[in-house]
Each structure stands twice: as C-alpha cells, then as structure tokens.
C-alpha cells in the first residue's frame, strides 16, 4: 500500500514537472534553431546556436542589460527584505489598534492596478529629477525605488510572523536582549526560510519588472533585460532564434537563484527550535 502511494506520488510529480518544464526545454531547443524553424515549432535541436549567440551579441548590449538588471535586482532584494520584514514584524509583534488600522490602509496600496498610478508616479519622479537627478528619471534608482517598499512583503512577513511563536520574542526579552537585538539575532536567523522565499520572489519580480522600468529608463545604456527582449521582438521580421537565445540567458539567473534558495526548504529543521 505504502509502495503504491509512493509510486503514485512520483508519477504525479513527474507529470507535473514535465508539464512545467516542457516550455523551458522547448526554449533550449529553439535556441539552437534558426528563426523559420522556431516559428514552425521544430522540436529537434539544430546547429544555429553559435550563430544566434553571435547575432545577439552583435545586435544588442546584452552584457550591459544583464548587469543593470542584476544590479537592480540585488539592491531591490536586499532592501525589500529588510524593510518588509521590519514592518511585518513590527505590525505583528507590537500589535495595537492603531497599527492594525494602518496595516489595512497600507494593504490598499497593492490593490490598485499599477497602470493607474504610473502616470502620477512618473510625474512625481519628473519633479524629483529637478532636485535630485541621482534618483530622478532615467536612473536605475528610479527604476527600483517604488518597488522596494511594498505592502506585499509587509503582508507576507506579517503572516509568517503569526506562525512564528511569540514565545521566542518573550524568551529573547527574558534573556535580556534589546528589541532590535531580538529582531536581528533571533527573528532573522529563525525565519531563514521565509527570507529565502521572499528573496526568490523579490528577485524574480525585479528581474521581470517591465512597465515601470520601461517608462522611467530612457537611455539605451540603462536598458534592463525585459526591455531588451521586448525590443528584439519589435521589428517586422523578428529573428526568433535570437529571441530564444536571449530568453534562455535571461531566465537562467532567476532559475539559479531559485535553485540555490530552495535548498533552505528542508523539512523539520525548525522542529527543535520551538521547544
């Protein structure tokens, strides 16, 4: 019986993995084919990878775009995690009526479609530009500033803090740690997996962010990866082989971040801490 269940589990997961991974494999194959074969859905690896890669390096500044995206994503991830977890922790551990109401108001900010606030936000950055060009329009800072402080991560950390025993905080206080000490020395290490999940999501969101960087970044040397890919598909005669090569290169960093982070998801590690 147990054996059968095992087999069934593996079967189920394998099918799910196959369905999930198929488009990725298709991308890998397409990367080695020329455009005409890609559009006709050829599923056999070809011999055009080097050619596609050369064209890509020739036509675009993918190195610069990768660097810009990477820089933005790393800064965004670090700051988002820090600011989001501080607030999520603050709202849950120092809970008060006033903060609860404030929390609900903050949550409102994630409910409006970004397209609706984009133009006023753009105008805001236009005004900032006059006084502080370092964070104004057409700077990498402008591309990530609105994304590092989000209700999403505050909410996420707060919900996870709910699951995390408050006794830990109490224990920390009894041990004589200060409030900040408890956060940095107990909460942060204990919530490692929550941080890992948040890091994956924050990195990915930043890496794939399109609309805001599109309007706010104007010079070609500030281009990020999604903008570069959008440009590749823009002409009347797009080269799908080159596009697929660019997409594979663009997908690898997030896939890698995920693969490194998911190792933290090891069951039962926390079991003992709570005791």
């Amino acid at each position: 019986m147990k054996q059968i269940k095992r087999v069934f589990t593996y079967l189920f997961l394998s099918v799910a993995a196959l369905v999930s991974i198929f488009p990725f494999i298709w991308m890998l194959i397409s990367m080695t084919n020329k455009s005409v074969d890609v559009t006709s859905g050829r599923l056999i690896p070809g011999t055009h990878f080097i050619e596609n890669l050369n064209k890509l390096l020739d036509q675009t500044q993918i190195g610069i775009a990768l660097w810009n995206s990477f820089l933005i994503a790393v800064i965004t991830t670090v700051l988002t995690l820090l600011i989001g977890s501080l607030a999520g922790y603050g709202f849950e551990i120092y809970r008060s009526k006033g903060k609860d109401i404030l929390f609900n108001i903050l949550i409102l900010s994630m409910m409006i479609p970004f397209a609706a606030i984009m133009i006023p936000l753009y105008r805001l950055f236009g005004q900032i530009s006059a006084d502080a060009p370092l964070i104004g329009l057409d700077t990498l800072a402008a591309a990530f500033l609105p994304t590092i402080i989000t209700a999403f991560f505050i909410f996420f950390f707060r919900q996870n803090t709910k699951m995390f025993a408050k006794e830990l905080v109490e224990a920390g206080r009894i041990d004589g740690l200060g409030e900040w000490g408890i956060f940095f020395r107990i909460y942060m290490p204990t919530m490692k997996t929550t941080y890992a999940a948040a890091a994956i999501i924050a990195f990915m969101n930043s890496w794939n962010n399109y609309l805001w960087p599109l309007v706010v970044l104007q010079s070609p040397e500030k281009q990020t990866i999604p903008l570069l890919i959008s440009n590749l598909g823009a002409g009347y005669t797009p080269d799908y082989g080159v596009i697929m090569t660019a997409i594979v290169i663009a997908t690898l960093p997030t896939a890698l971040v995920f693969f490194l982070m998911q190792r933290h998801f090891v069951a039962g590690m926390m079991g003992s801490v709570k005791g």
Binding site: L86, A87, M118, L124, L145
Partner: peptide, 19 residues
C-alpha cells in the same frame, strides 16, 4: 512604530500620493 515608519513613509509617497 520605528519598525514600520520607513514603510509607511515609502508607501505613502510612492503609492498613496499617486493614488
């Protein structure tokens, strides 16, 4: 309040003001 102040200010500036 110190834990949350940065978020409150940031969200107010980048989200509520445009909203």
């Amino acid at each position: 309040w110190l834990f949350i102040i940065l978020s409150v200010l940031g969200i107010s500036l980048f989200y509520f003001y445009p909203m």
